[in-house]
Design a protein around this nucleic acid. Structure first.
Lengths: 344, 344
DNA sequence: TTGTAAGCGTTATCAC
DNA sequence: GTGATAACGCTTACAA
């Protein structure tokens, strides 16, 4: 008799013998509700396997049950890890994930994003690095009244809007590992300017060298942009130095793979002639030869936590109520085969 | 004075001095409309920069302006390429992409998917391989009345619901390339059972060997599951053979990288001691050493085309009207450094 | 604690 | 061609 197979709130109300508002109260877990009424309605809901229509809710609430993933990250694996983490958090909830890549360079990026957010009336968005480091984007969200959580390598916002990793400390420790292995001439393949992660990682590198009293000539830092190719190019430069560095720390795995590539082209043996450390611990790290010693960046967990933060206290399930989602995620060194003792 | 900043259809109607239904007609490009009325309304729309509220439309039309990407593909790069292709097609339209990973193994997969599709009332879904090869999923979509397009390695549905690649022919040609280079003992790292792509690629391999009159002992085919690790394991098996194959064709790049890894561990030089061909042409192919000769699979273009097919004739923009989206996408051999003449 | 009436911003029906 | 009026399925006042 329904045109569409789905039962509506009216069906539930009619069968339960209450008003639709009461059903609505049950759905929304209104506290002022007779326990018996609630049970009765819940039974009918169960029996009908009724599910509130998200479109109608969205219209009435002026808010969609959609979580946006806004990103401009070039690394496929990283984006996928984030999506996976988000979806894990969203599983079993009424929320869905809609993906929105943006072009950091575009002049209309902010306007595009505003239109997107306003039109779709997203419940909230998760901002991935590096776009998450853009304060105007966060401000835009705030202005529009769209919840947001930023994933970044340093606290760039209020804790409730942040999920952070300790890149600086992690790279410091990775560098110390190199130093402990006798390396003194250590090159850095840095990340792109304007990326907070790149800055933090470079600072960690400098921290460690500074503490060890090792001078760091500017020539030992080569710029990259997180791509394989840029890693190759940076490595060329570093390996042209005399004396050559005995170790290279790369600010991500992609570039580290490029470093390996470049080193191999010169007939260098890794790790005998050159030790290498990466960052991220994407699958590529385990798959290159030799397997890459790298820093594991818990990006999926960060995304999961960020998504939970976004929907905290909203989800019908009370399991998370009051539980503060952790905001700081620790990266740790994964030792594999690309580091050995300095031979000279 | 609006509570929310956005102008509504009522504002447009009032200012244009027409009824909201007329505005609605303009929006939906109703053919029976006085040209002058239309122009007038369009001016007001322009002036107000009015945008129809998707939530309200979704409720009234019982259909959301969301395109789903349903996938269970383990390869991050492939999924990202598909997302990128889809989004390219959706850019500038009113559609958004919502991503839905499914678990092929799960007993409740079909039910979960049904609930998802029914609740969200998606406009349509794009089915990625390998889940796209599952006929029950397609049938589910059809039953629910949800448009769908399947991406697959063979025509498994009506043309309007398909976007196809010619994997069989492409692998045949790749194998012929090996044969032309003097290889006779060629191993195959096959894809997982139940994947149509795996079947098609294996068939192409067999076609080529058969045509060349080369016998194919069962031992020359090793099973993999499209992961790096499975490629390594399969290569171990193949390289244990006596005499050893002089070439290995791997049904995707990930596994080919695993083959390279395994070969290197045995001290084999590639391509001198072993020629290798992959499939996909993901970035990994260009980044391994030596750069991998592989078959380029135009997955992003396929996804773009699939998405266009999904929204064909709906998008306000007429540019696509009547233009049949191509359904067959040709894969081609990319020659890089992992193949050389057979030495023995 | 529960119900009634009035939206939310569109589209569909059916007159005019 | 165009416009009242009633959906669409839910929520928020405001009563009771």
């Amino acid at each position: 008799m329904r045109k569409t197979g789905q039962p509506t709130i009216n069906d539930v109300a009619r069968i339960a013998g209450v008003s639709k508002k009461t059903v609505s109260r049950v759905i929304n877990r209104s506290p002022l509700l007779n326990e018996e009424t609630r049970r009765k309605v819940e039974e009918v809901i169960e029996g009908l396997s009724y599910i509130p229509n998200p479109q109608a809710r969205a219209l009435a609430l002026r808010r969609n049950f959609l979580i946006g993933l806004v990103h401009d990250n070039p690394n496929a694996q990283t984006v996928m890890n984030v999506q996976q983490g988000m979806l894990e958090a969203l599983r079993g909830t009424e929320f869905e994930m809609v993906v929105r890549p943006v072009d950091r360079g575009s002049a209309t990026m902010l306007d595009d994003l505003r239109h997107f957010l306003e039109r779709q009336r997203l419940f909230g968005v998760l901002l991935m690095p590096p776009i998450s480091e853009n304060d105007s984007v966060a401000k835009l969200c705030a202005d529009i009244g769209c919840r947001y959580v930023r994933m970044a390598s340093a606290p760039v916002d209020k804790p409730e809007n942040m999920v952070t990793s300790n890149d600086r400390q992690a790279v410091r420790e990775a560098t110390e590992h190199l130093i402990a292995n006798g390396h003194r001439r250590i090159g850095l393949v840095a990340g792109p300017h304007g990326f907070r992660s790149a800055l933090e990682r470079r600072l960690g590198f400098e921290d460690a060298l500074g503490d060890a009293g090792i001078a760091l000539p500017r020539s030992m830092i080569a710029d990259g942009n997180y791509t394989f190719e840029s890693g190759m190019v940076a490595a060329e430069r570093l390996l042209d130095l005399t004396p050559r560095p005995t170790a290279i720390l790369s600010c991500n795995d992609e570039m580290a793979a490029g470093v390996i590539h470049a080193a191999r082209q010169r007939g260098l043996d890794i790790p005998r002639d050159l030790s290498i450390i990466g960052f991220d611990d994407t699958p590529i790290a385990a798959h290159v030869w030799p397997p890459l010693t790298t820093v594991r960046w818990p990006i999926a967990s960060m995304a999961r936590s960020a998504a939970l933060k976004l929907i905290a206290g909203i989800d019908g399930d009370e399991r998370d109520e009051g539980v503060e989602e952790p905001s700081l995620f620790l990266s740790t060194l994964i030792r594999r085969g690309s580091v050995s003792t300095a031979s000279n």
